[in-house]
Design a protein around this nucleic acid. Structure first.
Lengths: 205, 205, 205, 205
DNA sequence: TATGAATGAGCATTCATTCAT
DNA sequence: GATGAATGAATGCTCATTCAT
């Protein structure tokens, strides 16, 4: 058959998209199932038929993003790391990683906003974020930093300090520039990396 | 007089502190006035007597922090900037600024968390943050960056890019390390600044 | 034909049995059509195809029991009464009647429980019970009591008082012993009748 | 002060009375808190302020009746039993007991109906009934029957059989005559007892 | 000044019922 | 003949808010 998705799957999907949209805008607690139903073009009953409770809708959003993030790691980030012996410098690696991940969150801006919001008030989501997204980023950056230091290309500084500047810059782009819309929001990723690598100080190189 | 605050002022203060505590933990929408009343040790009626509506409590928290932040700027940050011709290097200036502001938010961690949370779902708070806190930080960093560049101490890069790394690192410490509790949370501010100034790249200097 | 019942009749029957089971356990109002459907192994839609509304299911249960009770009377109780001139004493008659009716309700314990429950909150079922079951029992006991008194075998007491002790004892067995499970639940019908006939008082005879 | 009850106590009482009335009429599951609120002349919120959940309202009704029943036993039934050596015959004792208890339930007809109804579908209420009311009646009747037999006034029949006729007659009056309104409902308690004691059979005495 | 009693609009959730397939 | 997807009115319950005392 041409239709790749059953009707009920399409309905579930519509509900999920509407939920992400509404929660990203108003927050989980301030979003009503009535609003979600209207936005999704279904009745409230249908939402509960598929998701049981409002909170399971939130869970679903979080878990979906986690799975996608993990799949993304396995299919994009790690293959890159493996290719590292093929000549890509740690710097190039870091650049690719930051670009890809930024792209990932940019494409899922609303869901990302949902997680950032709810993480602050929901223990379970905080845990999922820390173990899923943060843990992953920690492992990947550790690998790159260690390799960079081993190759004599990175300064020998505690990985946590390196992460502070690198991931600080990364999340700043996502949270402040993309989501909150401050600092202009221009990309200029190359200049940013140059700056991180060469330092703020004039005459350093 | 021995009593520096009238009874009613103390009651108002108790309510505000309880509100900050509860909202920081559960978010504005999930915090009930009943909980606040219990936490503050007053009746619900008293809250409404003083603040009229629940949302005015939130406004009050935001505005209080804004005023304190502004007073702090006027009394600490700008005087420093003015003394800059007295020999302090832009680097020293930046370091002082980051330390002081981090201290400011660290002392007001709960209120800061409230603003970060609600900023994402409340247009009015987002506006206040952007105009108040962010605007201030933009002006101050612009001044420092410009002076640093003029003095030939900073690389000649768009201030927005400079800000991305500097404030990214700064907010990372506050949001991720202080509030979310990831990346170990060790201070090591000096090393962090060294890294930002000298760059990630080995042999840069 | 080997198949005595069409498929659709069997489906209707399954639904009815499931309904009796569920309502007996949880009551009409607390029983959902979803539960009935699951218990009967059909879809909810099927229930409504056959019975139209939930309340018609209840009606059906009540009416079925009434018809069976009435058929039972016509085929068992009245023939006995007619045979009474054939030598059976009114006492024997009463005994047979109580045994037979107890057997009837015992075999339909769940449906009986349904009627007892709903009779208390549903005017229409109360009416059906009073006119159907109660009325029948009144007529039958009147006939027996009158005959017993005429034959000089029963004391000359108002039939309503006689009924109070006889049917009280009868319904106690059904409701309290069978359905609620108190008082041990042993049968000992002969001793019970002896007691009713001879009285509680020692030395009476 | 002249007012013997605080306002809040009066409100609680109004709610409880309305609840008993409505549940007795329509059953627990079919009674809405909205109806109760209207009947009690309060808002729905007030019901939940005082009782927390709808089911606690039911619990309260059941527990109240249990406590009253128990107090009644302690203050009326047991004192009578103690006076038994003062010359009251077991028959007289039984008569007093049945009259008093009938009076008790008659004065609380609605609450009694509530318990009878819900006992059939609510395990917890069934348990409370069995342990509270039934257990009490079992103990009291055992004491009377044993004493009656010891004194040679009652026939030597298993107490459970005696109870079947005595309590059967008793509950018949309450459930069938008082609550369901069948069998005329005339009192004639003396004749009923005579019948129970002397037996149905003519010429027994 | 402060309380606690009361409110009622609004919420998440349930469930009998409909209907296209 | 039977299903499962969808509905929406109704329910129990919450909570910001009011107000008499």
């Amino acid at each position: 058959m041409a239709d790749p998705m059953k009707k009920s799957e399409r309905t579930k999907q519509k509900i999920l998209e509407a939920t992400i949209e509404n929660i990203a805008e108003n927050g989980y607690a301030s979003t009503t199932t009535k609003e979600i139903a209207q936005n999704a073009g279904v009745s409230e009953g249908t939402i509960f038929k598929y998701y049981g409770t409002k909170s399971k809708l939130l869970q679903e959003i979080v878990e979906d993003l986690m799975h996608e993030f993990h799949d993304y790691s396995v299919n994009h980030a790690f293959p890159e790391l493996i290719k590292q012996n093929d000549g890509a410098s740690p710097r190039q690696l870091l650049r690719n990683l930051m670009e890809e991940r930024a792209e990932f969150f940019r494409e899922r801006k609303a869901a990302t906003k949902v997680i950032l919001q709810e993480m602050m008030v929901n223990e379970s989501i905080a845990k999922t974020f820390k173990e899923g997204i943060w843990g992953e980023m920690e492992r990947v950056t550790d690998a790159i930093f260690d390799e960079g230091k081993r190759a004599g290309e990175f300064v020998d500084v505690d990985n946590r300090i390196l992460r502070r500047t690198v991931l600080g810059t990364f999340f700043f782009r996502i949270i402040f520039e993309e989501i909150l819309g401050v600092n202009g929001g221009e990309e200029k990723i190359e200049e940013t990396l140059d700056l991180l690598f060469a330092g703020l100080e004039e005459g350093g190189e």
